[in-house]
Design a protein around this nucleic acid. Structure first.
Lengths: 320, 320
DNA sequence: TTGTACGCGTTATCAA
DNA sequence: TTGATAACGCGTACAA
């Protein structure tokens, strides 16, 4: 049926092992033989069966990415970053979208461990601590956490955006625009993104001798524009509405802007709005959304590279 | 190291083949033995090595999705639809994003064929005809085309949105809003999406005794908000600017809106804008974008189901 | 530098 | 209904 290594060997007048070597460790094969073998490989357009190869090496050349959803451009970009980095090294990206359902997140990871992926990138809600206690005994493949800060102590790699810096910049941006009654629309309080953005933001406010009034602290959901709309609507109905808002991601910010405009207010004259993350849409929202970047594409790329790091790349990537 | 089928067999006091049967075709095994085997499987938390299994069966339980990018929510939703459908049947989705580069599209498909995926879903620029002539001889796995209309004749499945209907609705929506000088911002002229939307739109215009003035026919790129902005800016600088615009997807529409507003014009009073696709962001753009739906999530789901159809599902999906 | 022989973990075949 | 044996296609000791 499909052509295999012995077919090539026969045609080249060598043994299968020599073909194998010519493909995986060319330096072990005499130049002449190697050249001939590679020619025939080309000619017959042979390519090694990855399943058989995997069975021997214990590798699948597949990396899994765990994310809450794909329609949030933040994660879509991250996936693109992963894919680009992986492909250049002959690896493939398998998607583990858990649709914002934490129970499903565990099932998805479980399935990937069974599937024997070569590495896992977790940009989800699971912490290294929990991963350790749930899956730790079952695997020794590299796991990289994205945007979880304290994972190193558990022996996992971690790639994080400098969110503290971003949060401080966001605060400064609002102050520069003259905002004095500053509110925030955060994601869920227990979410690590939220924590890492809120604390430095508050601290920066204090540096300016201000503080975050508790009634200006509202909460939405990172995946839902609507919750941003709701939160901002509430803020605007206060007897003393804010004149500056920091939305904790651009999804929320989109809802915030909608709420402001639907009350007939002007941005940034009446209310200044600053978001986080840098989805490509941002500059085209009307009015333009001021956003603090934390390129998720780069984050994904770095996570992929970190994951491949310990694995190395024993086989040449599919040439051509 | 990792536990295998003989370990289970030994503990259960049966042969490996019986364990295999108990797992893959339970009806061939006596109830008592099966029950005992499954218990032990559970107890040892054994799960079959997918590589070895694949080597025997010739299946990987992986389906590839070919798309131009992931940051366009249209395709992100499609991927989500695919993944949901696949996971429920024990399959996995591997991402083939070709970053809008048609040369890369071919390489990506080539890589997947080598990887021995069980099926391919192509939502890209490649037509069935070209796929046939380039890869036809190399594979017998099911291939499903998304939004390419004339693929059946080449023996491939095809899932398409009813774009003609959508285009007609878009036209009607503009007319109802009183638009009489109607322009379009299309994607690339040779793109199949463009073709399938443009013709019916023109025809519907004719039904209203109007026609599409060539100078109102502008072209952008489906992946770029900015080209929509540019195209619309051009239209607005005509001595007789349009009072209604059909943008061929919501990415373009976003740019179009930005262009209109930046000229100080009002939507929909001065210019009515209608888009295509139904990205979740649309209702939150300001002003709201009128959009004709063609749910890409469902499209992806249906494509996945069509792809699995001929494959069937010989193994029970990873239980629990 | 190359070939032989074996093993990776599973399913398929066939006989019992 | 079950077990023994032979594949699947490859990489790797080991010997030559």
């Amino acid at each position: 049926m499909t052509i295999n290594i012995s077919d090539v060997a026969k045609k080249a007048g060598v043994s299968p092992s020599t073909v194998s070597r010519a493909l995986t460790r060319p330096d072990l094969v005499k130049t002449a033989t190697r050249k001939k073998i590679l020619e025939i490989v080309e000619e017959m357009s042979y390519s090694p069966n990855p399943l058989a190869r995997g069975l021997m090496t214990g590798k699948t050349n597949i990396i899994a990415l765990i994310i809450p959803n794909l329609t949030n451009t933040y994660f879509a970009q991250m996936a693109e970053g992963c894919e680009e980095a992986l492909r250049s090294k002959g690896y493939h990206l398998i998607i583990g979208n858990y649709f914002e359902d934490n129970t499903m997140e565990l099932k998805v990871i479980d399935a990937f461990l069974k599937r024997m992926v070569d590495g896992i990138i977790i940009a989800g809600s699971l912490t290294a601590k929990d991963f350790q206690s749930i899956f730790g005994s079952r695997t020794s493949i590299p796991v990289t956490f994205v945007n979880h800060s304290a994972e190193l102590e558990y022996g996992y790699d971690s790639v994080i955006a400098d969110e503290a810096h971003g949060a401080r910049l966001a605060c400064q941006a609002l102050l520069e625009r003259g905002a004095r009654k500053i509110a925030v629309v955060t994601g869920p309080a227990r979410n690590p993104y939220t924590k890492r953005r809120l604390a430095p933001f508050k601290k920066e406010l204090q540096n300016a001798n201000m503080y975050l009034d508790p009634c200006y602290l509202t909460e939405g959901h990172y995946g839902s524009i609507y919750t941003g709309f709701e939160a901002m609507s509430k803020l605007l109905s206060l007897k003393e509405p804010p004149d500056g808002v920091f939305a904790f991601n651009d999804t929320l910010a989109t809802g915030v802007i909608k709420a402001v405009l639907s009350k007939g207010l002007n941005i940034p004259k009446d209310v200044a709005v600053v978001g986080f993350d840098d989805i490509p849409l941002a500059p085209y929202l009307t009015p333009s959304l001021t956003t603090i970047g934390s390129s998720s594409f780069d984050l994904g790329k770095e996570a992929a590279e970190a994951t491949l790091g310990p694995i190395g790349n024993p086989y040449r990537p599919p040439s051509k």
